[in-house]
């Protein structure tokens, strides 16, 4: 690293790296917002003082998705049955449905979401069923439409509808839902220990 001498007070010379940023982030008027992606993410750190690192269940959704099968529903956060899942969006998913609302946030890539209003939702997903289930074949019902989402876009996956994801290139979905039969728990593989 190239160093340059900078004159400081009391005749002291400080050696600082060359190509210095002019001013710090807070002193400039131009800000750069950093988002993560499958191709460019940096996992944070735990500095343990007097604790068990497992207590923080610390993972990174891009790290998880980079090691997941397409549309594998990997739980990254759980709170008494409610979960956040990370899905690697790649290709076309199976159809899913749930007996409750779900919300998907696209965190990387371009993901289309197809929606079908189920003719007989209770026959597809029993009332009280927790979490999403896979719908066999093509769901029976009326097409509701589709949504094309990019990074940062949130889409409602409403109760009573079936949905599927389509992504030409790998992307990442963060799904607010309920722990269910399709949810995958592999905490020891994804979290700091």
């Amino acid at each position: 690293m190239a160093l340059e001498a900078v004159k400081s007070g009391e005749g002291v010379l400080l050696l600082v790296p060359g190509n210095r940023e002019v001013g710090g982030i807070m002193m400039t008027t131009k800000f750069e917002t950093t988002f993560g992606s499958l191709g460019d993410f940096s996992k944070g750190e735990l500095e343990i003082i007097n604790d068990d690192p497992k207590n923080y269940v610390f993972s990174n959704i891009f790290d998880v998705a980079s090691r997941s099968r397409p549309y594998e529903k990997v739980v990254v956060a759980i709170n008494l049955g409610y979960v956040f899942e990370t899905l690697r969006a790649e290709g076309t998913s199976t159809w899913f449905a749930a007996a409750h609302d779900e919300f998907a946030i696209v965190m990387d890539g371009v993901v289309a979401v197809d929606l079908v209003k189920l003719d007989a939702p209770d026959a597809v997903v029993p009332p009280g069923q927790r979490g999403a289930i896979a719908v066999e074949g093509t769901p029976v019902g009326r097409k509701m439409g589709y949504v094309k989402c990019k990074r940062g876009h949130q889409v409602l996956l409403p109760k009573g509808a079936a949905y599927r994801f389509r992504a030409d290139k790998p992307g990442v979905i963060l799904l607010q839902t309920v722990d269910g039969a399709l949810s995958v728990h592999k905490w020891a593989d994804i979290c700091y220990k």
């Binding site: 950093t34 993560g36 996992k43 944070g44 500095e47 343990i48 604790d51 690192p53 990174n60 959704i61």
Partner: peptide
């Protein structure tokens, strides 16, 4: 502890 979180954590 100190928990340093970056985008996606």
């Amino acid at each position: 502890a100190k928990v340093i979180m970056k985008a996606g954590d």
